[in-house]
Amino acid sequence: MRTTGRLMWVLGGSFLTVDLAYFIWSQLAGNFELVGLMTIGLSGALCLLLAFYFGRVVAANGEFEWAEDRLDANIDDGDPEVGFYSPWSWWPILLAAATALIFTGVAISPWIALVAAPFLVVCITGWVFQYYRGYFAR
């Protein structure tokens, strides 16, 4: 992880250097373009943010070896438990439909998004609280 952090520092610095060169070059050419400048600059900022995060994780936990780096590791060593998924649940499908309606409303007409917003809230609430009622209540 320390190597990944160092790589991100170098990559972020490279992006910011290229961003500065892009800004100067566009000023000298007389056609200032904000989209490219922001894209390269935000890519550098993202790399620096990741480098800072990886550095803080290494500082807090110490250097450790990932399962992918060990020659004697099994497949299960790099496959942690990521959570629980309900295969019988209909809420993810309804949530996808509500989100599709929201995006359709943003693209076509805002009143569609206003009608779909309560449906989205109901779907999120149902998905979060699906284990509090019914046959699978805990």
Results as ranks from 00 to 15, higher is better:
V122Y: 12
G55I: 04
L28A: 07
A96T: 07
G78Y: 01
N74K: 10
A100L: 09
I75L: 12
L34R: 10
I124A: 07
G62S: 06
R6M: 14
P80A: 02
W90L: 13
L16V: 06
E33P: 00
S109E: 11
E65P: 01
T39F: 09
A96P: 02
L120I: 02
A107S: 07
P80V: 02
L20M: 10
G36E: 03
V115L: 14
S43K: 01
L48M: 10
V10A: 14
S109Y: 10
L7C: 10
L94N: 05
F84H: 08
S43R: 03
T3H: 15
A45F: 10
S89I: 00
D76Q: 06
I24C: 15
T39V: 12
D79A: 11
A67Q: 03
W88K: 14
V58E: 15
Q130H: 08
L37S: 15
Y132C: 07
A60D: 07
L37C: 05
I112Q: 01
D72M: 04
V82S: 09
L46F: 12
W66M: 08
R56K: 13
R133S: 09
A59E: 08
L7G: 14
R56H: 05
A29P: 00
I102R: 03
R133I: 09
Y85A: 10
V57P: 03
C47S: 15
W66V: 13
I124R: 02
Q27D: 08
Y53D: 12
L120A: 14
T99D: 03
V18E: 08
W91H: 07
D69T: 07
M1N: 09
A97M: 11
F136W: 12
L120H: 04
I108S: 04
L49E: 08
A97E: 08
G55T: 12
F136H: 12
R138K: 14
F54A: 15
F129G: 00
L7H: 08
S14T: 08
F84K: 00
V18Q: 06
M38I: 10
N31T: 14
W25K: 14
S43D: 11
G41P: 04
F136L: 14
L48C: 11
I124W: 03
V122Q: 04
G41C: 11
V82E: 14
R70G: 04
G55K: 05
V106L: 07
T125V: 11
W91Y: 08
M1P: 11
I24D: 08
P92R: 02
L71Y: 00
T4K: 12
A73V: 02
S89R: 01
M38V: 15
T4N: 09
I75N: 05
A29F: 00
Y132S: 13
L7F: 10
A60E: 10
G126K: 00
D69H: 05
A113K: 03
V128F: 04
E65M: 13
L49A: 15
F52E: 09
Y135W: 05
S89Y: 00
Q27F: 05
A67E: 03
G62Y: 08
I40F: 06
F119L: 15
R133E: 08
V122E: 02
S43W: 04
N74L: 11
L114E: 10
L46M: 13
A29R: 08
F52T: 12
G36L: 02
I93T: 13
A60F: 06
G83P: 01
